[in-house]
């Protein structure tokens, strides 16, 4: 049977470990900073919903490596293709994560990478089409703290 004191000692350890994982901490990116980054990418436009699909786990097993996939519905011809897709995260030290650039030679506008998420937050993907129109999708990814920090 675990005594209350032991439990508290253990809790202190776990808490300390959670602190270590975060380490040097600047100001967190805010929702406002993320909105500003979206504006910078779209040229001030508000992206429309649809055409882009962001796939990310609902719960990330470890925030250090979270797989994300973006797919955009587009014919990918010389006249009509997806120029770029940017990925942002509104709870990291900085919202910028990665920006993909496509061409008609990409065949389809789809890409997968692995990203870092410092805590539970929204991941946003915005697509910019060759005609300048923009579309977005977002997913909340829960980032959990492991049991023993180990």
């Amino acid at each position: 049977m675990m005594t209350r004191r032991r439990l508290l000692a253990g809790t202190a350890t776990l808490t300390a470990m959670a602190g270590v994982a975060i380490l040097a901490r600047p100001a967190w990116a805010t929702v406002e900073a993320t909105e500003a980054a979206i504006g910078a990418f779209t040229g001030g436009k508000t992206p429309e919903p649809g055409r882009i699909t962001l796939t990310a786990p609902e719960i990330a097993e470890n925030g250090n490596s979270v797989p994300v996939t973006v797919e955009v519905d587009s014919p990918m011809t010389e006249g009509d293709y997806v120029a770029s897709v940017t990925i942002l995260a509104d709870g990291n030290p900085n919202p910028e994560v990665a920006t993909f650039h496509f061409t008609p030679l990409s065949g389809t506008a789809a890409a997968t990478t692995r990203i870092r998420l410092a805590k539970t937050q929204n991941v946003v993907a915005i697509a910019k089409m060759s005609d300048g129109s923009t579309f977005s999708d977002r997913k909340e990814v829960k980032v959990t703290i492991g049991g023993c920090g180990g």
């Binding site: 675990m2 032991r6 000692a9 253990g10 350890t13 776990l14 719960i59 959990t144 703290i145 492991g146 049991g147 023993c148």
Partner: peptide, 21 residues
Amino acid sequence: QLNFACASCHEKNSGNYLRAD
């Protein structure tokens, strides 16, 4: 100080969640 053996987690609690693990 936690008074755990290997078996505390990996035998007696194998299959359970230790927070998110």
